[in-house]
Design a binder for these strands. Sequence first.
DNA 1: TACCAGGAGAAAA
DNA 2: TTTTCTCATGGT
Length: 217
Amino acid sequence: MRGVLEPLQAHWGELSWWPAESPFEVMIGAVLTQNTAWRNVERALEALRARISFDEAALLAVPPEELAELLRPAGYYRLKAERLRALCAASQAAGGWRTLSALDTDTLRHWLLAIKGVGPETADDILLYGFERPVFVADAYARRLLGRLGLIGGREGYEDLRALVERALGREVATLKRAHALIVEHGKAHCRARPRCTGCVLRARCTFAAEAPGAGL
DNA sequence: TACCAGGAGAAAA
DNA sequence: TTTTCTCATGGT
């Protein structure tokens, strides 16, 4: 696995991912970016920032219809307005994001997953980038890349894939952030809809993968 | 015009 | 249990 990340880092350098000023802002962004390009998320975040301060009470004070309109640029705006309200209500009931930050990682993850609209990937985005916890975001880019490299079979569930990569990379937050960012940037640039990473820095490894699938992490 | 993006949940099979 | 459908704007 580290052998995959080294050429990616050599090519992409240090990536500074998920610009946000607080864990709460990461929580908002993680919901807004569900199946949505980050460019569109930024527009909604700007509209939101111009209207309110980023905290649970301020967001919940915005009428639901107005909140949905503010989120329109991010797509699925009615759905995401409901999801943000559910997340903020849960956070507020728990004492706010500062209180949540004192919870251990497993407890915090279970708490997040119990909120309607927060699935495993969104929860792990929040844990890794918001609360600096050692989890890997096992998104579609990771699944696609590792599948093409023959490092996974491709039928693993989300939790299985996450556990596999965490075992391979260790528990260092900076490493897990870097791995996720590199895999996504690489995927967006080279591997989006192609059957193999032709023309990219990992091409040779993909060829190897075709010959020796299931080489393991 | 068609496809996809830093998914999740409900409904159908 | 697994697959399919719905939610939606904006860029390529």
